[in-house]
């Protein structure tokens, strides 16, 4: 039977000089769940995500992917992860095809698997005609689609995404969400950080709100609404909780 994977964040602390980015953050994302991480600018969302993909080392606390610590078992933990960074960052002088082949070979996918996945994702994201185009010639939204293709291509058990739909056109956003839902139905655990409250409201199954490096609220949309009034939107809930904290 295939291993089901979760994300566990336990009492994470991180400091940059005098700034405390994380102050004991704890939450978990179960398999088949889309967890939306919300918070104002500087709340510690990106730091959390970077810790989870092994790019930043926490000062204290534990972060685990599929039960593997991202600090002591980094390589093993990351082999389960597909990651989309915050900004449209990609190798400027590689073509889309070369970039996806690069990621495929690092993940030890067979040539056929890479070709198949490339053909599928470039088709659904309407990038097939541009497969030999250099990344530097692509728009922000197109780079996001390439990064999403790379993250999906590796068949991750855990998807970690920082503002993944920024710059994408509505059609691509729809395709993106459908694809994520398809993966979630197969048991993938998804952690998504975004400022698009409408999207989070409709897309995520559970939401965590962080401010100044700690979790101030967590639960389903209905649970959170109860804290701000039955008719409240996620925006109202978010503003109320952040103000109170």
């Amino acid at each position: 039977m295939e291993e089901k994977c979760s994300i566990e964040v336990l009492s994470l602390h991180k400091r940059y000089g005098d700034t405390k980015a994380l102050r004991g953050l704890t939450f978990s994302v179960e398999p088949g769940e889309i967890y939306g991480l919300l918070g104002p600018n500087g709340a510690g969302k990106t730091t959390t995500l970077k810790i989870l993909v092994g790019l930043v080392r926490p000062d204290r606390g534990t972060a685990r992917i599929c039960g593997r610590s991202v600090t002591s078992q980094r390589v093993e933990a990351l082999s389960f992860v597909g990651y989309i960074p915050e900004n449209p960052i990609c190798f400027q002088n590689l073509t889309i095809r070369e970039f996806l082949e690069f990621i495929g070979s690092l993940r030890e996918l067979s040539r056929e698997d890479v070709e198949e996945a490339m053909s599928y994702y470039l088709e659904i994201f309407e990038l097939k005609e541009k497969r030999n185009e250099y990344v530097s010639n692509l728009s922000r939204g197109m780079i996001q689609k390439v990064l999403a293709s790379a993250a999906f291509m590796v068949r991750p058990k855990v998807l970690i995404m920082d503002e993944p739909m920024a710059g994408m056109d509505p059609e691509a956003q729809h395709v993106f969400k459908e694809e994520v839902r398809r993966m979630v139905s197969r048991g993938t655990a998804v952690l998504i950080s975004s400022h698009l409250l409408d999207m989070v409201e409709k897309f995520c199954t559970r939401i965590g709100i962080i401010n100044r490096g700690v979790l101030i609220a967590e639960g389903g949309l209905d649970d959170l609404r109860r804290r701000a009034g039955e008719e409240a939107s996620l925006e109202d809930v978010f503003l109320k909780l952040v103000e109170e904290s």
Binding site: L78, V81, P85, I89, C90, F91, I103
Partner: peptide
């Protein structure tokens, strides 16, 4: 990308 994309790989 060498940091954010490459080093986020296993």
């Amino acid at each position: 990308a060498e940091y954010e994309v490459l080093l986020a790989q296993p």
